[in-house]
């Protein structure tokens, strides 16, 4: 699995229309596939031109999301996250 590109979702909590679920912020996963580009929904929501952004499907383990409360640690959750919410990381776990 050395080819996995791990990403961390930014842990920010900005106001306004955001399509990055709060429960994924600060969490690390890997790129399942890259989609887009799609117009940035955070700009579209306010009537602005939506700048095109890559949209990445990030796969998280349930262990990463819920820790010891995970129902089954190896189950996964995939979500679509816009590129500006992601930063490349080496380690598979959030600090």
């Amino acid at each position: 699995m050395t080819s996995r590109q791990f990403m961390r979702v930014r842990a920010d909590m900005p106001p306004g229309h955001v399509r990055t679920p709060a429960y994924l912020r600060g969490k690390c996963g890997w790129v399942e596939r890259t989609l887009g580009p799609f117009p940035n929904p955070e700009e579209l929501a306010y009537g602005h031109h939506g700048h095109p952004l890559p949209l990445l499907r990030i796969r998280f383990t349930m262990a990463e999301l819920w820790g010891s409360a995970a129902e089954h640690p190896d189950d996964t959750l995939d979500a679509e996250i816009y590129a500006h919410w992601l930063e490349k990381v080496d380690a598979p776990h959030a600090p």
Partner: peptide, 12 residues
């Protein structure tokens, strides 16, 4: 069995 949940958060 691995459960894969897909959260349909954006354009797909």
């Amino acid at each position: 069995t691995t459960v894969r949940v897909h959260d349909s958060t954006a354009d797909m």
